[in-house]
Structures are given as structure tokens and as C-alpha cells.
Design a protein around this nucleic acid. Structure first.
Lengths: 200, 200, 200, 200
DNA sequence: AGATAAGCGAGACGGTACGTCGTGTCTTGCC
DNA sequence: GGCAAGACACGACGTACCGTCTCGCTTATCT
């Protein structure tokens, strides 16, 4: 990596340490992954875990929300490859990606935060949705619309409602389903039940 | 009333004030209703709003979680009267009850807490589910099972999955749907979409 | 102990328990004797040690100061018998009484309180002086005045100043003298030194 | 002074504020000067009056006693200039200094505390004695020893007893004398009475 | 090479809330 | 009506973090 970007006007003085920045983000996600909520998340703990002074954090983010927004935004949505053989298979793949991700502590905690802070810290939710949820949403929409075209799904299907049914049912199981990890058969079961009302 | 209850040993000293207890619970729900999360919820603020000393709170609940558990548990589920004319009507009534409740700030905040604290404060969720969610769940199950008997629903319908679809889709709209209040037509739309896959 | 005093007009209801009263006073003096100052002296501790409810204390004394005043007032000044053979002997007897008393923890603590609360709780001091100090003062004054009459002391002696010298010197040794108990020879030494300036 | 002491390792981080330290000490003495005893002396009140956080106090002194010890230790003994013309004049000067000081509320309260906490908080007394009482004691001893050399005082005089008589008599008047301020003639009267027994 | 300037770890700062304890008052049921 | 027990509103305790502010360095660029 070049130490001299040609185009940008560089401010005087010592440049900010990228290493510190990464350590801070990582420490934040670490703590979140341990189930620490936004409120309990203490800047002091982040600083200490990142081996960094508090000033170094506050110099970059003016408050905790901003930091969390940026930290969560680094979580990307690893879209599964879709075989394209059938709508059913692709939808199952999408749900299976969600299911396996929900098995990881960090992802589950991030999801909790995103959902729980929806009211108090709207920006956290918004930014995260845009970066991490929207791509999946788009993928699911494409699959469904393709299904309508191919005749696998009813032509008068309300796409939004269809997506809501699939995602919502999955969400329901994640939050209220029997404790412990989700069964591997769940995506298939959900899709089959949902398709029953969508097939022509 | 007899001054001498035979069975229970009445403890010595001044009995605990029911008034104080109610004021504390009410103040807690008030603050929660203003969007204060469990973490930001300060015992000092509750005490002050309830016009009560902190000791009076700590005498009853040894920690914040216990208090919140009890406070949320007082939120009862006002089950709507079900006409019983058809499965469709009854399910719409159930969803409509949820929709109108989600319009109230306090209920919405309570729901947020219950969902967000699911990991950190499992007991909050458990107790609330048992007191407030389970009755509705039972009602919905009865409606669906009755529908199977009357032939309004497919005889081989997986009741649990059916409930997950309906509740989950509603939940989805509550959390991720277009901002602002839910449309009054939503319950009807959801039920119609869901029934499409459940009708015989 | 009779439960029925003949003469006094008796108020209705159960008479106050003399036993409780004594226990309270005794507990108070006990605690004071352990070096607990007026401020640290907790009504709760007194009640608990006396095996008495707090109400029983507050029914009799409206505040801590009143209780302490009464408690200290029960400490009497056991004036030593004065041989009367000589002024010197009598003065030594008086100081010796003070010396031996200062060896008892309770007396020493009481003295500390009386002296230290002089400003804050003037009534404590006043009442105690009147009951416990004044009699000794009077005794010493009589000895000195008798000495003037008998010619053992200078006829132009300022009696008040003489008393101040003797008592003050003793007080000084009590508070600032070498740590530990006062030497048995001290009274004699003080009186001899003081009489040097008082003899004719 | 060099800004770079070679030997001492300067601790990292922001140095402690001398201003805060002084404000705390001053607030403590202020409150003591208003007659607040050690027990009633609340750290919260000191912090508030000093415009300082409680932490800033606890960072320096782990308990109230330590703080009071340091606060009282800053009270210096402003020794009066001694003319040296005669033992009598010098002793009167010393007593006069004590008298005028006892007119100031703060000094009087400090004295009360030092005397009353002698048992409970021995360190308060010890440190204060060393810093504030010992210098005066030394001055008085020098005057008296000089008097013995010059022949103004008896050669066989017990110096310690002489000091006890003078200081003790003064102390007596301070505590038990007629209420209100001490008479301006008192020092002269005491010294004359005391010297009567010390002159050759 | 030296001056200038911002970033850095450390940690003190004025605050707020914590959960505990003791205050003086009150409210029970028993005596 | 006295009594013990103990709940009550209140306020100080000593602790933990907050977000801000100095410190003495270090690390860059610009003379």
C-alpha cells in the first residue's frame, strides 16, 4: 500500500493510524458478539480491548451510535450462490444462508441489536439494512419475479407479501422457535409451506 | 375478614405497601413506554417518578431484570372476542388486535424490549411469553384446529407452521414494513395470502 | 417492683416499661463507652442492643441529643471522701478521683463527648456540667476557701484562677500527656507545683 | 527548579490538578469551620462546595480520616514574634496568640475536632500535634529554659510541669470559662498566677 | 536538519447512577 | 396505649463509566 496517495490533499501532522481504527472496530464487534448490547457497550471497554486511548475513539466517532453504525456496516452479506434450477431450490438456499448465519454468535448478536435498536437508534438500523439486508432482499425478489415469469409461481402473486411471508416465517422461527439451533430441515419446510399458497 | 388467617404466617412489622408496588410498576412501564431501554432504565429515575425511595424498590426486586420481568408480566393480552363465523374472520380479528396494539407507544416499546433482550435477559422474554404471548398463541391454534375440523382448512395442514406463517408475516411488517402505522387492511391481506396455501 | 404506683394520676393504657427505658440508657452509655461519638451513635444500634423497637426510643426522646443528655446525666460524680487534714491532701484526693475515673473507658469517652459537643450540642454540655462537674467544682472551691481561712493558702489568692490552674493542668495531662494511663504520682505532682504559687 | 527531574519517573497521563486539591482542602476546612464534625462531614458536601467530582477526592484520599488529617495539617502555627525582653512578656505573647486564634471560628472548630477525635481517629490528632502544636510547645519550652538560665525562673523548676500549668490553664478557660470570647486580660492574669509558683 | 503540527496512550477531570446503609416516621398485630 | 417488628422517603456512602481535558511522546510533512 502506498504511503502517498497522489490526489488527496493531505492534512498536516501525523496521519491517523489505520491499525488503531481496525482494532477499535474489531473490539467493538467482539464485544457485541459477546452479547453486549448497545447500551452496555462501554467506550472504556472498547478502548481497553483495542489497546487504544479513549481519545483515539472520540477523535473518529463523536458518539457511540456512530461507532456502532460503522462497525456493523463492515458486516457484509455473503450472498449464497443460487443454482437457478428452480425457485424452490433458490429460496431454500437463501433461507439456508440465513439459518447457518444465525448459528454464529456474532451474527445473531448483531441481528438482535439491529432489531432492538430500531427505535432508539434508527440510523444503526437504516445503515445496516442498506448494506446487509437490502442485497438479500433484492436477491429474493429476483428469484420470485423469475418464478412468476417461468410460471413456477402464480402470475397474480403479490411479490412483497410473498417475501414478507417467507422472511417473516423464518424470522419467527429465529426468535420464537424452539430454543437452540434451528433444524437443518427448516428452510425446506418453510419454503414448501409458503409455496403452497403461491404456486399456480 | 378474620384478623387471623389460619394457614399463612403473617410476617411481623408493617406490611409492604401495595400502593408503592403499583406506583413502581407503573413508573417502570411509563419509562419503558417512552422508549427507554432496559439498560438506560435507571432505578433512580423509576424511584423518583414513582415517588418512592430506592430501598423500597430493592426490597422487592434484587435487580433491574427482576423488576422489568414483573412489570412486563402485568401487561396482559386483551384477547379480542372471536365471532366464530369463519376461520378467516377470526384470524383477521386476532391480527387486527395485534395491529391496533402496535399503534400504542407503550406496547410497541414493550415488544421491542422483549425481542431485544431475548438473549441477554432470557427470563424477561420467557415470563412475558408465558403471560402475554401464549394466550394469543393458544387462541390462534384453536381457530386453526377448528378450521381443520370444519373443513375450512386442509386436513393435512401443519398447524405450527401455519401459525408461524401468520404470526411471522405480521411480525415482519411490524418491524421491517414501511415506516409509520400499519395499514388497516394489512390483517386482511396477510390472512388472505396465508390462507391461499392452507385452504383445501 | 410494684406495677402500681399509688399517688400519681395514671394515664390510660399500658404504662411505659421502666425496663425498656433502663435498657435504652444503658445501651446508649455502652456504645458511648466504646468510643462511638454522638454522630456515629445510631438509634438503630441502640434499639438493637437494648432489644427494643425504635419507636420505644422516639416515644420517650424526640431526638438523639435529648437521649444523650439524659443518658449522660445518669453518670453521677462520686465525690471522694475528703479527710480534711490539709488542703494539699484534699486536693490530691480530688485529682486522684479524676485520675482513676479517666482510667475507665466509659468515663473517658463521656468526657470526650462532653468536650467535643460543646459547640454543636450545647445542652449536652450544660446539663452534664450541672450534674457531674459542678459538684466537684464546688468541693474544690470549698477546700481552697478553707485553705485561705486556715492560712494554708495566700489570703489574696484568686480562687477561680487557682481552680483553673489545678483543673486545667490535670485536663492537659489527660488529653496531651504521654499516652496510656496517667501515673499515680501525677495528682501529687500537680498539686505541689500549683501550691508553690498559692502558698503564702 | 528543573522541569526534568532526573531521578523520579514522571507518571503517564494527565497530572493531578493542584487547584482541585487546594479547593478540596479549603472546602473541608470551610465546613469544619462551620462546626461540622468529622462524622457529619460528608464527602458529597465537600465535593460540591469545592466544585469537584467525588472521584477526585477518592483518588487522593481513600477515606475521610485521611482527608481530614491532611486538611488539618495545613493549618500552620503562626508563631508570634517574641520580644525577648522578659520571660513574662514572651509567655503572654504566646498565650495572646492562642487567645486571638480561639476567636476565629475555624480555629476553634479545628481545636474541637482535634480534641474530640483523639480516641477515635488517633492519626488526626497525632499529625496535627506534630505540625501545629509541637512548634508552639517548643517555643514555650525555649522561653522557660531561657528564664531558668537568666534567673527569672527557679533553677529547680520542672519545665514540663510548668508548661502543663500554663497551657492547661489556658485550655481550661477556652473550654470551660465563661461563655463568649476570652477577655484580653486573660493571658496576663494566667501568666502572673503561674509565675507566682515558678519565680525563684 | 529543524520547525511545525496532528495523532497517540495514559489518565485525571466534573458528573451521573449504581446498590447499600442508617435516619426519623409510619403502620401493622399482639399484649 | 405500649410494644417489636419492619416498611417508608430520604440522603450519603464508595464504585464504575461517561465524555472531555491535559500531559509527554511519536510520526509525519514542510521549510
Amino acid at each position: 500500500m502506498s504511503t502517498q496517495e497522489s490526489g488527496a490533499a493531505r492534512p498536516a501532522g501525523r496521519p491517523r493510524s489505520e491499525k488503531a481504527e481496525k482494532a477499535i472496530i474489531e473490539a467493538t464487534l467482539d464485544l457485541i458478539g459477546e452479547g453486549v448490547g448497545v447500551a452496555e457497550l462501554s467506550i472504556e471497554a472498547i478502548a481497553s480491548r483495542a489497546g487504544v486511548g479513549k481519545t483515539t475513539i472520540y477523535r473518529r466517532w463523536s458518539n457511540k451510535e456512530d461507532l456502532v453504525v460503522d462497525a456493523l456496516a463492515t458486516m457484509k452479506a455473503p450472498l449464497p450462490p443460487l443454482s437457478g434450477t428452480s425457485v424452490r431450490d433458490d429460496l431454500i438456499s437463501l433461507l439456508e444462508a440465513m439459518r447457518s448465519e444465525s448459528g454464529q454468535a456474532r451474527s445473531r448478536c448483531v441481528m438482535n441489536i439491529v432489531m432492538s435498536e430500531a427505535d432508539r437508534h434508527r440510523r444503526i438500523t437504516e445503515r445496516f439494512m442498506e448494506r446487509a439486508v437490502e442485497p438479500r432482499r433484492r436477491a429474493m425478489r429476483e428469484v420470485i419475479e423469475r418464478g412468476i415469469v417461468t410460471g413456477e409461481l402464480r402470475p397474480d402473486l403479490d411479490v412483497d407479501m410473498g417475501m414478507a411471508i417467507i422472511s417473516g416465517t423464518m424470522l419467527w422461527h429465529t426468535k420464537w422457535g424452539p430454543a437452540g439451533d434451528l433444524s437443518p430441515e427448516l428452510p425446506e419446510q418453510i419454503i414448501d409451506a409458503a409455496l403452497a399458497g403461491m404456486a399456480p
